[in-house]
Design a protein around this nucleic acid. Structure first.
Lengths: 223, 223
DNA sequence: ACGGTAGACTTACGGCGTAAGAATGGCAAG
DNA sequence: CTTGCCATTCTTACGCCGTAAGTCTACCGT
């Protein structure tokens, strides 16, 4: 629809291109994100997109930047000095939510630095909370880094699982037919359905890590 | 070298194909792993590979399976019941080492279930150590999962960083020119070089997680 | 001796990212 | 109004990709 006649201008912007790319990737998968298809989505030839984006790789970089940015929207300046556990947990939760909202960009985020200026505010805030609580600065950096990577890894695994309909082994099926004598605990876990809920697993993982951070505090207290 | 004359047989095997693919990906990057190039590497036409592998995607699956398999070689049957912390730490360390040895397959591993029969032994052994130590089975499953995902995320970030020679921001440079007033802690961390060593960061992350697991033990003891 | 068959080869198709250059149309200067 | 500039868009084309489909060849059990 809306095919423009020859000579009419589209008047795109880099933002519109990125938005359309993100929508396309979310709708049809990252594999369907093609310069030609994206151009069609915007009623424009593929080559036109190169006026807003130097290459497809840069476009993908823009996508992960976009997702990270909207994952960490505002530090909520009205709030006072928050407890570091609360802060880090909410950071993890909202980052996971944003990544799951755009599962297509997740594999991209795993292979890119993804340190955009927009995320610096959040990092600084996290460092502030941690150092205020008594963590040495180096430890605080480590902690934030570790938490981010755990969130990334966990979310990637979540997003990858449902997309395996006919691969080498069906996700719900491969657990049921394994040797009960050789793998008693595994079969038991499979039978009782231990650890299948993603959100619960995520909460466990984050809490475990935060507890580990608390143990690294010079003072033994964990408040 | 070794170009076969017409009609001569190559006598390949699936294993040889996977080995060559892994070597090619390690040497020239995952982007250079092409059916044609892989065929050339084996003195064979591209289509011939399809007799050993149903599709390129299956070939990639085979690659991650291969890496995981050689990452967890033998449970060392002579060893007695190992301390769970020691066991999990050595699991994390060897998994990281194997993944770093083949950085090309890492982005693939992040988007694939990667639960191959070869890894089941390791998982079962980990569950055994954890439940013996007093962890409920569900918690043990969670813990192993979390640890694996942390290793994956951490290693992916490690492998991705040096491969950013000209992206949106140079890795060593972007830290030096940020606003010192707006981001005091960040600049301080950058100046003192806090948390730059990958191995140290990894050790911190794993130890923190293990400490967190210990805190989840029903008994308060952490041995 | 010979037919079956598994493995290897050939050809071809549609799609990809993008290099190179030609067209179009709005706009400022004369 | 005319003229020329220039950002934006379109067209064409190249080399590469994964792989469907069909053909050929050499070996092996009989």
């Amino acid at each position: 629809m809306g095919k423009r006649t020859r000579g009419e201008r589209a008047g795109l912007t880099r933002t519109q291109v990125l938005d359309a790319a993100l929508a396309l990737a979310d709708r049809d998968g990252i594999g369907a994100l093609t310069m030609r298809r994206l151009g069609a989505e915007l009623d424009v030839e593929a080559m036109t997109l190169y006026h807003y984006v130097p290459s497809k790789d840069a476009l993908l970089d823009g996508l992960v930047e976009r997702v990270f940015t909207q994952a960490l929207p505002s530090p909520d300046p009205a709030a006072g000095p928050t407890d570091w556990r609360t802060l880090l947990r909410s950071y993890a939760v909202s980052l996971r939510a944003a990544l799951l909202r755009h599962p297509g960009v997740l594999p991209l985020a795993a292979s890119r630095p993804a340190v955009t200026p927009a995320t610096l505010d959040t990092v600084e805030r996290g460092l502030s909370a941690l150092t205020t609580a008594g963590f040495p600065l180096g430890t605080a950096v480590h902690a934030l880094n570790t938490l981010s990577l755990l969130v990334l890894g966990h979310t990637a695994a979540e997003a990858a699982r449902p997309a395996a309909p006919e691969g080498s082994a069906g996700s719900p099926a491969w657990l049921t037919r394994l040797d009960a004598d050789r793998y008693p605990l595994l079969t038991d876990a499979a039978r009782t359905g231990a650890g299948v809920d993603d959100a619960e697993r995520f909460a466990f993982a984050v809490d475990a890590l935060l507890n580990g951070f608390a143990a690294a505090l010079p003072g033994a207290d964990s408040s």
